Simulated assay, not measured.
Amino acid sequence: MAEPTAEQQAIVQQAARGLGRAGLVHAFGHVSLRLDAGSFLVCAARPLELVGDLPGTVCPVDGQLPEGVLGEVRIHQRIYARRAEIGAVCRIMPPALMALSTQGVVPRPRHGIGAYFDRLPLWPDPRLLRDDAAADALVEMLGDAPAIVMRGNGAVVAAETMPKATTLAWFLEDAARVERDVRAMGFAPESGLLDAGETAARQVWAGQVAERMWDWLTR
Score class of each variant (00 low, 15 high):
residue 103 Q to K: 15
residue 191 S to V: 10
residue 193 L to C: 10
residue 204 V to P: 13
residue 94 P to F: 11
residue 151 R to A: 03
residue 133 A to I: 12
residue 149 V to E: 01
residue 71 G to E: 07
residue 101 S to C: 15
residue 66 P to S: 07
residue 206 A to Q: 13
residue 198 E to L: 00
residue 34 R to L: 00
residue 92 I to P: 09
residue 137 A to Y: 09
residue 31 V to I: 11
residue 105 V to L: 15
residue 199 T to V: 10
residue 15 A to W: 06
residue 165 A to R: 04
residue 112 G to P: 00
residue 77 Q to K: 08
residue 208 Q to Y: 14
residue 80 Y to E: 09
residue 104 G to S: 11
residue 101 S to A: 15
residue 168 L to N: 01
residue 18 G to S: 10
residue 157 V to A: 03
residue 176 A to P: 07
residue 207 G to S: 02
residue 154 G to Q: 00
residue 22 A to P: 09
residue 90 C to S: 00
residue 38 G to V: 04
residue 142 L to Q: 03
residue 211 E to Q: 13
residue 137 A to N: 09
residue 83 R to I: 01
residue 27 A to M: 11
residue 169 A to E: 08
residue 156 V to K: 04
residue 182 V to G: 04
residue 90 C to D: 08
residue 141 M to E: 14
residue 66 P to Q: 05
residue 177 R to A: 11
residue 167 T to D: 11
residue 174 D to N: 15
residue 108 R to D: 15
residue 102 T to V: 14
residue 65 L to F: 08
residue 79 I to A: 07
residue 216 W to E: 14
residue 8 Q to R: 08
residue 192 G to W: 07
residue 109 P to M: 09
residue 214 W to H: 01
residue 100 L to K: 01
residue 150 M to Q: 04
residue 102 T to P: 00
residue 44 A to G: 07
residue 36 D to G: 10
residue 107 P to T: 08
residue 165 A to F: 05
residue 81 A to C: 03
residue 153 N to C: 09
residue 16 A to F: 06
residue 180 R to V: 14
residue 156 V to S: 07
residue 150 M to S: 03
residue 68 G to H: 10
residue 175 A to E: 02
residue 207 G to E: 10
residue 114 G to Q: 10
residue 118 D to A: 12
residue 186 G to I: 14
residue 38 G to I: 10
residue 173 E to W: 05
residue 8 Q to T: 09
residue 157 V to R: 00
residue 153 N to G: 08
residue 54 L to G: 04
residue 211 E to P: 05
residue 201 A to V: 00
residue 21 R to K: 15
residue 87 G to C: 06
residue 137 A to S: 13
residue 101 S to L: 12
residue 199 T to L: 06
residue 29 G to T: 02
residue 120 L to Y: 04
residue 167 T to N: 12
residue 13 Q to T: 04
residue 35 L to M: 12
residue 85 E to A: 07
residue 131 D to C: 14
residue 161 T to G: 03
residue 100 L to I: 05
residue 201 A to D: 07
residue 210 A to S: 02
residue 105 V to H: 10
residue 140 E to F: 11
residue 6 A to V: 09
residue 94 P to M: 11
residue 135 A to C: 14
residue 183 R to L: 05
residue 7 E to Y: 03
residue 50 L to Y: 09
residue 89 V to T: 02
residue 208 Q to M: 14
residue 100 L to S: 03
residue 18 G to Y: 04
residue 62 D to K: 13
residue 196 A to I: 15
residue 156 V to M: 01
residue 161 T to A: 02
residue 195 D to I: 13
residue 172 L to N: 00
residue 95 P to I: 08
residue 11 I to F: 01
residue 208 Q to D: 11
residue 194 L to H: 04
residue 200 A to Y: 10
residue 192 G to M: 08
residue 17 R to V: 13
residue 155 A to L: 05
residue 5 T to W: 04
residue 174 D to A: 14
residue 141 M to C: 13
residue 186 G to Q: 13
residue 26 H to E: 00
residue 15 A to R: 03
residue 54 L to W: 02
residue 70 L to I: 06
residue 217 L to C: 11
residue 120 L to W: 04
residue 61 V to K: 01
residue 100 L to Y: 02
residue 129 L to H: 11
